[in-house]
Design a protein around this nucleic acid. Structure first.
Lengths: 242, 242
DNA sequence: CGCGGCTTTGATCCTTGTCAACTACAGTGG
DNA sequence: CCACTGTAGTTGACAAGGATCAAAGCCGCG
């Protein structure tokens, strides 16, 4: 049961509930033809109507919106095992853009394959639905964070979430936060300078360490206490919720 | 086509795409036994595992979370035609609470009925999926608002959104914002006092009027310009997008 | 070597939070 | 009828978190 699955999509969906061996086999077929992308390239832009969806195998991808005044807001992070845009088949035109933050390895999945999965593999359908709803729960938590917590706790909370999500797909060997401080600021909704100050504050308190724009967490329990992080919104009962 | 449907759920789902007459008939059956609730009562609390979902017929309902420090964040508004908690059947335990903001008329729908709809009415299934994805898009927009706009524009943007959503289900005769300023503040993520100042500022500029805790918009076009509101994220192509 | 991108730090300003007092008003009970 | 209570709205003074502007340091790269 605790097998170190090679297939990161299967590993992720396994958090939603049991999958049968035929499901796993099907998911292996889906991951056919990975390709690489550099950091800071767009997968899809606001207004497009793309014909296939993207699965992240490695690296970090984000959803973002740009305002009239040029400010950017990053409204979601996609990690290995996450599907970027399951919804385009239903909603049509994109109401936001999707781009890489780091070098990434990705797989394109056509709408047809997705519909095959949804129609003919009920356990996978349920798991994909689960995944959509967890994404929504994460958005709610980000909203709470931004509206009701100070920037230091908000940043710590973000680190805790990414830590938990990477752990849930056995990818904690990846760098926790391979981001520039501008990107961090666009996630938190603060200015670059302030993000910098808050980060160095966390560093001074020994809650995180930073090397080459990579954040590491020496003591996750302490960080969780500081951030008042409660991971129930990630709905990871099956996996490394703790 | 522009029929003034009595059934507000049908009216809402009609925004997702065409429904056949059998679908409409089925949706009429679902709305069987409405009940009333006063303002500020909880439908579901954090940690529960409820057995049926709730549809709003009239009034205003919200999702909210309460932090350790007692602060509250309202993370979603549900208006007539919205289903409050379609996800509980998949996610299990609630990671937030749901409560009324105003007097409401609601309908309970059992999990069994929901599953019947999802399994046997493909157009309704698609429409419900659409509705979930629009909810997610709204969350993203709220996040942008909170992170990257000043409180006055943020509040104006909220009013524009509620205006558009009520129009899309032919309920603009309802009061636009029948909320106390504390509730408004919990939506925007600011303090009560600041919400008060911002609201009176909007009033001074003639962008909104207020009577008995009810906000009205004399000139929606002007308000939209001020808020830089672009409603594409609501995905209302069929209805009153403009 | 010089250039460009990112980080770090300081100074100053502005938006928003906090504390507190006061007003308005509806409901209640004497 | 009136005093009493509780709740929500309003306003002012002050503090603090965060934004903005500016300059300097760091580092990889051509």
């Amino acid at each position: 049961m605790h097998s170190p699955m090679k297939n990161v999509l299967a590993r992720k969906l396994w958090n939603a509930g049991r999958l049968a061996s035929e499901d796993l086999k099907k998911l292996d077929d889906v991951i056919a033809d990975p390709f690489q992308l550099d950091a800071r390239e767009d997968l899809i832009q606001h207004g497009e109507d793309p014909q296939n969806v993207h699965l992240v195998l490695s690296g970090m991808v984000c959803r973002y919106k740009v305002l009239q005044n040029g400010k950017r807001a990053i409204v979601a992070l996609m990690l290995p095992g996450d599907i970027c845009d399951l919804h385009v088949a239903i909603l049509g035109r994109m109401d936001h853009s999707i781009g890489t933050l780091t070098e990434c390895s990705l797989v394109k999945i056509s709408r047809g394959v997705i519909e095959d999965l949804l129609d003919n593999y009920p356990r996978i359908r349920r798991a994909l639905f689960w995944s959509t709803l967890v994404d929504e729960a994460i958005l709610r938590e980000w909203l709470v964070n931004m509206g009701r917590r100070r920037a230091d706790k908000q940043m710590a909370h973000l680190f805790c979430e990414v830590h938990a999500r990477l752990t849930a797909v056995n990818r904690m060997h990846d760098a926790l936060m391979p981001l520039t401080q501008e990107e961090l600021a666009d996630i938190l909704g603060v200015s670059t300078v302030h993000a910098q100050r808050v980060l160095s504050e966390l560093r001074n308190q020994g809650l995180v360490t930073v090397q080459d724009s990579r954040v590491a967490v020496p003591d996750i329990v302490r960080l969780r206490q500081f951030a008042e992080f409660e991971g129930d919104y990630l709905h990871l009962e099956h996996a490394a919720a703790e």
